[in-house]
Design a protein around this nucleic acid. Structure first.
Lengths: 136, 136
DNA sequence: CTATCTGCAAATAATTTGCATGTAC
DNA sequence: GTACATGCAAATTATTTGCAGATAG
């Protein structure tokens, strides 16, 4: 049988990066931790993140038009992504679980649900309005 | 300004593949069309699929733990993915649009919503039940 | 004709993996 | 001391791109 995972400086650094950064990709995590630990390698970052995801300590989030992101927030929630600047937001749905309940369909036993909203964030839509005003 | 897209044998073959295959990845489309047109290249498949997606003729669907898939069904719907066999199902939600309405949050202007359910499909859960029965 | 499209091959870029060494416990 | 973890580099794989020649309209 497999032994217990061990606590290492590298795992701690990767986890810390997840809480400091905002829905980072593996590469963004690597850049962050590599600045502090120059020998911490890409392979380790991917392995550690994969281990966290498999162990349920973090959620691996796959959104359209971007690499996999890692999210330390475990409470059920969806994500919004700004089509303009790419920023990712947590979206806490008022009645998340009912979405799955309503969608049950013949024989498919649902045990998870990911929701992604695309749109334009506040900052980007204001910037667009300003630019349109200048053109007229 | 850009001229109108042209109709080519290659585009037709790629679109046909989308309707024959079931939520295929670009590589699955390539394998399919390449069998009939041995010179049709990977680059063309990716370019054609990207063009279809940009033009709104097909939906590019990004699910967890798999490459991008392409879906010719344009009516709003979500997707279910079997964790065991990987099969992808269309899931027509009873009140899809209300999900987005309920989730509006400060300043983020939602214009699209993707929903992915994970679970176990009918065939795989029956197989599991059979295997458990044999062990006892 | 000519702008768009395609084939091909090379370039990117994310992620995975093998293996020898390091280290948590 | 031993099993798990890391560093490094090479391998894999999806996707993109540059460019010269083909072709739709």
């Amino acid at each position: 049988m497999a032994g217990a995972p061990r606590n290492t400086r590298q795992k701690q650094a990767v986890y810390d990066a997840l809480t400091c950064l905002d829905h980072p990709t593996a590469t963004q995590v690597y850049d962050y931790v590599h600045a502090e630990y120059p020998t911490l390698s890409r392979g380790t970052v991917f392995r550690v993140l994969g281990g966290f995801a498999a162990g349920g300590q973090v959620r691996k989030v796959t959104l359209a038009d971007s690499d996999a992101r890692y999210d330390p927030t475990l409470a059920p929630h969806g994500h919004g992504r700004c089509r303009v600047c790419g920023k990712v937001f947590d979206v806490f749905l008022p009645d998340f679980d009912s979405i799955a309940r309503d969608a049950v369909c013949g024989g498919f036993r649902i045990d998870g649900c990911e929701v992604e909203f695309t749109g334009v964030c506040d900052m980007c839509s204001q910037k667009t309005m300003r630019e349109n005003a200048n053109e007229e």
